[in-house]
């Protein structure tokens, strides 16, 4: 199958043989793919300028089983200029997609979310909000949507109550005075995340923990390298150990 002018993003590249690359791309219509970019590391390769992270591309490729072949790549718009912390958010998105999307599963809606999230990360808006919305969309687009407005017995979640949350059982209301070692979420947080609006820092922070715990489960508790590295880099800069997380 030959595909032409397919919108795509590069997620990861690794060296293959002397002068080629194996690239992971996220395409608008065909989901995540692995392609071989022959000669992409030669000095005059036509792929070189276009094959950059966080850059909208149009690609041509021929698809064969596991590994297709890239035949053309051009840059379709400016690279999203992610700097500092935002850049590592971008790497985090890429690692989620590489780790959790099956090859050849189409995710057109998720592709649009990915694009939007990069745009927001590149702008000077709050990155944590954009990330939470991406994580939520990512889970629902990959078949792990969260029920946040109803508790495990089917009752509407109350803003002034406290809940436990797990992907299997959903929100479980806690009786007053209940002591539990697990993370407790306010009904307000669950409803805020349900709507995708975060009225204050607390709901945003709790949403981060909730989404992280669900994603960690999906990753089978094998940690994300981009996150580990980000923490390590922060430590290098602050010269402190365990300053946070």
């Amino acid at each position: 199958m030959r595909i032409e002018r397919q919108p795509a993003y590069l997620l990861h590249k690794r060296q293959y043989r002397e002068s080629s690359l194996i690239i992971e791309v996220f395409t608008a219509e065909y989901g995540r793919l692995s392609l071989i970019a022959k000669g992409a590391r030669r000095p005059k390769s036509p792929f070189k300028a276009a094959l950059q992270l966080f850059t909208p591309m149009l690609i041509n490729y021929s698809d064969r089983n596991e590994l297709g072949t890239l035949t053309a790549a051009e840059q379709a718009a400016d690279r999203y200029p992610l700097r500092a912390d935002r850049l590592y958010c971008g790497y985090y998105l890429n690692e989620l997609l590489v780790r959790l999307l099956h090859r050849h599963d189409a995710h057109e809606q998720l592709f649009r979310y990915y694009s939007q999230t990069l745009k927001q990360l590149a702008r000077d808006t709050r990155s944590d909000k954009a990330l939470r919305l991406f994580e939520k969309a990512f889970l629902s687009e990959t078949g792990y949507g969260l029920t946040l407005h109803l508790d495990s017995s089917g009752q509407p979640v109350q803003a002034d109550q406290n809940y436990l949350f797990s992907p299997e059982y959903g929100a479980q209301r806690l009786d007053a005075g209940h002591v539990n070692s697990q993370m407790v979420y306010s009904g307000k947080t669950l409803l805020a995340l349900h709507k995708g609006e975060f009225p204050d820092g607390d709901t945003l922070k709790q949403s981060k923990f909730l989404l992280r715990s669900v994603i960690e489960q999906r990753l089978e508790h094998r940690p994300l390298k981009s996150r580990e590295l980000f923490i390590k880099m922060r430590r290098t800069l602050t010269r402190e150990t365990d300053e946070h997380e």
């Binding site: 990861h12 690794r14 590592y88 790497y91 890429n94 690692e95 590489v98 390298k225 981009s226 580990e228 590295l229 980000f230 390590k232 880099m233 290098t236």
Partner: peptide
């Protein structure tokens, strides 16, 4: 160079 998805960070680069 830094390559977060490959686990290449400050230590690997001898920073």
């Amino acid at each position: 160079h830094l390559s977060p998805l490959d686990g290449i960070g400050p230590e690997e680069l001898g920073l």
